[in-house]
Structure formats: C-alpha cells, structure tokens
C-alpha cells in the first residue's frame, strides 16, 4: 500500500531536506532556483488572506474572528492524505512544544482543503495526532469556494493523482498576524524549530532583520535563534569557537611544558 504514496513523498522529498537534528535549515530546495509552483514567501509577503468560515465539531467561527484573539499559524491539509500532512502536523507539534508560547503568542489553525472532509474527519485527525480537544489547536473545514480563494491567496496548489487516488500538494506553514497578513512562510514537512521561532517572533511583533534562504547542503551555519532561549549553538558556531579554545589549550600546554625547563634552568624564575 505504501507504494501508493510514493509520488507524493517524492515531491515532499524534494521539498524537504531534513538535515541532522537541530540543523535549523528549513526545507532545502535542491539548491537550484525554485521551481515555479512551489510557494515562496517573497511573493506573498504581507498580503492579506481572505476571510473564510471555520467549521469545527464544537463550533462555527471564521478566520478573522479567530485572529481577533491573536496571530495564527495556518496550514492546509486533507485527512485522506497518505503523504505529508500527518508527518507535518507531528513535526509542528514537536517544534511547538520545544518553543513554547502556544496559546499566549499564537494559536494554530489546521484547515482542510478537501471539500469531502467533514468536521468529524478533522476531529479524527486531531485525535490521531493526540491533539483532540486541545484549546489552541483548531482543526476545521471551510466551504468549497473559500478553499479556492484561500489556496489562490497563498500560492498553494493541489494536483489530483487519480492513479494513486491522492492529491499532490506542497507542505506550507503560514504565519498570519492579527490583520490577517502573511508574515512568514515555512515550506516542507519537517518544521525546523529555529525557523519556526523566527516566524513566531515576527507574529509576536518582533522584527527579524534577516533570514536564511532555502539552500542545499549547508552544514555549518553559524547562529540560530530559538524564540525564548536566545542563541543556539551549532556546528558552525563550534567552528568559530574552535580557534579560541584550541589556542587556550595550546598556550596552557606550551607553558606547562616550559615549567620543566624553568625548574632546570639556573636563570629561570
């Protein structure tokens, strides 16, 4: 059965390059210029997304009503997905748990882009991911026309794959500020906590003066932020500290060796 999802996974594979844990580089987009069709933050930055009703098992609300209570992390999924959707929710959940701030700084809205999905299906998805009844994770559906508008407004796309009875689609996490404007984009199923931290910072109203672009095979990046924990060390930073540390050790060693000579030399001190 798994072979069915192969196509979706291949796509995801090229969207995400989960490097070793804690590396913080977001989806590596195969280094080359981005292929058209892969949503890129630059094109949608600060655009307002259209309002849409949100139906959950418990209530009916709307995106802008949810935004009144604070910024939203927003993503589109579908419950029959055998590819990226569930892993992404899982990855997001673990990143969010590491970073904190959920409920105070922002909440998470997971909407289905599949008109066949009912609020029950979304509730089931929440249950599968252990987020059932979580006050700050909102799993819901919306109307078919709203789906079309939302998908267009964030450069998202869906490509039905009749052979595999699946829908190919990118994995995108979108940061919305209180005005419903797109603040940041994260592409890929694997949510790097360091990148997510920047999104959260920005949603909270702090300026992030620079961010890394998707790159291939960069192992030694330098500095990474974690929202509440400040600077995070990684291999690049270790390389930067190396000269100082080795020099310290080397100097101590040279003077330690010299001690022997100092004792034996008559003129020594």
């Amino acid at each position: 059965m798994r072979a069915r999802f192969f196509c979706t996974l291949t796509l995801i594979g090229c969207l995400t390059m989960p490097l070793a844990a804690g590396k913080g580089t977001s989806a590596g987009l195969a280094g080359q210029p981005l292929k058209p069709g892969i949503p890129r933050e630059d094109f949608y930055i600060f655009r307002k997304i259209p309002d849409a009703p949100v139906f959950t098992l418990e209530r009916q609300t709307s995106i802008y009503r949810l935004l009144e209570k604070g910024p939203l992390l927003f993503t589109l999924v579908y419950t029959r997905c055998n590819g990226v959707c569930y892993p992404m929710i899982r990855s997001l959940r673990s990143a969010v748990e590491r970073l904190g701030g959920l409920g105070t700084d922002y909440r998470i809205l997971v909407l289905s882009f599949d008109p066949r999905d009912e609020p029950e299906d979304m509730a089931a998805m929440a249950r599968v991911e252990g987020l059932s009844g979580h006050p700050h994770w909102i799993f819901g559906t919306t109307g078919p026309e709203n789906i079309r508008q939302l998908v267009a407004s964030v450069g998202y796309w869906r490509q039905p794959d009749s052979l595999k009875q699946q829908v190919n689609h990118p994995a995108v996490l979108i940061g919305l500020n209180r005005n419903g404007q797109i603040v940041r984009f994260l592409v890929g199923a694997s949510i790097a906590p360091a990148r997510l931290a920047e999104v959260i910072k920005e949603m909270r109203g702090e300026f992030v003066p620079s961010y890394p672009l998707p790159r291939k095979n960069v192992i030694f990046s330098c500095f990474q932020y974690q929202a509440d924990k400040g600077l995070k060390l990684n291999w690049g930073f270790a390389l930067l500290l190396m000269p100082g540390v080795v020099t310290l050790g080397g100097s101590l060693w040279i003077f330690h060796r010299g001690a022997h000579q100092r004792r034996s030399a008559p003129g020594g001190f």
Binding site: R40, D42, F46, V183, E202, R204, F207, V208
Partner: peptide, 27 residues
Amino acid sequence: YPTEARQPDMVVFVTGKQFNFGIATHP
C-alpha cells in the same frame, strides 16, 4: 536593526549578481 515588527508600507526586493543590482517590487 529595528526590533519592532511594524508593518512596512512597501516591500522592495533587491538581488545582487555580478555586476548589477536587480531592484523590483517582486522577488
């Protein structure tokens, strides 16, 4: 380096490449 994430009124994209700057309202 501003710290406050005020909404800018306009975003301009600048891309350098040997030996010119591309400046546009789209990336």
